[in-house]
Structures are given as C-alpha cells and as structure tokens.
Design a protein around this nucleic acid. Structure first.
Lengths: 128, 128
DNA sequence: CTTTATCTACTACCTGGGTAGTATTACCGC
DNA sequence: GCGGTAATACTACCCAGGTAGTAGATAAAG
C-alpha cells in the first residue's frame, strides 16, 4: 500500500522532484544549477532539502566518488495524482465535474483548450 | 492587490472555513459542534485555530455577550480559486487541459460525470 | 606537500499548521 | 455572595517545510 503521504509536497520539494524526474537523477550541484544556480537558493539549502526528502522516502541516493547522486523514489504520476486527489477531496468532495465547473467559470479558458477538453472527454467516453 | 496568500490552507482551517461559509457565522462552540463536537478535536483547539486564523486575516469576529461570533473574511470562491490555481500552476504549469487529462486517466469517472462535463464545456463554448 | 575547492553532516532558526492544557474572567443560578 | 460553568487568553509543544551557516572530510591543483 505504501502510505507514503505523497500529497503535501512543498513548493521547493516539488521543484526538486521535477528536476529529478526530468533528468532521471542528479547531484546536489545538478539540482542547484537547474533551479537557478545560487541566485535564489543556497547550495546547502538544496543539500539539506534532499537529505530531508530522503528521510521521508521521496528520493534515494547512491554514492559516486565523493558525490551523492539522487534519484526519485516516487513517480511523478503518484505525486501528481496524490496532490490532485487531495485537493479534489478537500475542496470539491471528490467531484471532478465541480472542479472543472469552478475552473471554467473563474478562469480564462481559450477556445483551443475548450476544444481539447471536448476531445478528451469524447475519447474517454468511448473507451469507458 | 490583497496578497492574502489565500492558497495554502490547512485541512482543519479549511474545515472551519467551510462551516463558517455555510452558516454565515458562528461561535467557537458552533464550529466545534459542527466538526463532530469533541470526539476528534478539543474545544480549545478550535478556539486557538480561530484566533490564529483571525491574525492571518481569514476570519473576523464581533462580540456577542461574552462570546465571539466569527465570520469569514475571505470568500469561498477566492479560497477555492486560490488553491486550485496554486495546484494548477505547480503541477500543470497552468494548463487546465493537462489537469483534466490527468484526472480523467487516473480516476474512475462515471458516465454521468462525463456527460456533465461535456455539457459544461459546450455551454462555456457557446458563451465565450 | 600544502592550499584550495567541493562534498556531506550537523546545527540552528523561522514560519505556520495543528493540538491542547491551564489560567483567568465573567456570567448565571441558587 | 458563592460555586459552577462557559468563554477567551496565554503558553507550550510537535511536526514539517524552508533556509542557510559552519564544521569536517577529501580530492584536486599547484
């Protein structure tokens, strides 16, 4: 079951995960660089964060020379899903339609996006 | 601009807000009762939370006898929107279609819900 | 071999959510 | 008036995210 509580990732943690998902793996330096390379965040901040994230089971590391190479321990799908579901449940009692309704009425949605959605739903309806 | 940072509400805070949105206002006792009345949460927990929330600008209170009557200081729409947008931006770079795609492919969606969505989009397309 | 750059480890601090006990105040019934 | 009750205020924790400095180890450069 792996109740990893995969929702509730902070902004920074998510950014880090995204880097790792994209690259497959990466050292602290890699991640640091990918996130703007020091202008915003200290190197040690990334290092600390990665260590904390490993303790929480979000990433794993192997040793390469004197560097740690981190790689994701949870898939992007699981996280995305966990967070989406969490929001959906908290705000819309699980109703996808309610969420979409809300987004459609409070957001600017381009005609292209609407068409894309239409197609998605048609597709889904067919295969269900 | 009112940078109230209306996203990032904790679970309990959201529950409390929901009670207040529904009732219009309420005392600590009202909220406490609405949330199960002590089986889960201590009375003082709600009181503390409401005080903290007032400090953050989420609710306001007026005095009625010796009781505080709290009422929402932010609308449910603003919060819902703030949180949805936050997630949308963090996970899907703002693409509504991507979010829906994800939800459609990872969730069970009933045929009824699909039809509802279809209708929503058609409606929206017309009025845009 | 010594200096320097590069790693990780450790520690510390701040913020905010969550939880609740204890203290104090004030009203209400007798 | 007095005791109980119900209300807020205060204080204190714990946890997790975020941020970063400092220390210690080690490899690379000279």
């Amino acid at each position: 079951m792996s109740k990893t509580k995969v929702h509730r990732l902070g902004d920074l943690q998510l950014k880090i995960m995204k880097v790792l998902w994209e690259r497959g793996d990466g050292t602290v330096a890699d991640v640091h660089l990918a996130l703007g390379g020091g202008r915003d965040l200290a190197y040690t901040t990334i290092a600390t964060m990665l260590r904390k994230m490993e303790a929480r089971g979000l990433v794993r590391h192997r040793v390469d020379g004197r560097s740690f190479v981190y790689r994701p321990a949870v898939g992007s799908d699981a996280v995305t899903r966990g967070m989406s579901d969490h929001l959906l449940d908290r705000l819309f009692e699980g109703s996808l339609a309610d969420l979409v309704t809300h987004l459609l009425t409070t957001r600017e949605v381009s005609r292209e996006e609407l068409s894309r959605l239409e197609q998605l739903i048609a597709e889904r309806k067919k295969s269900a």
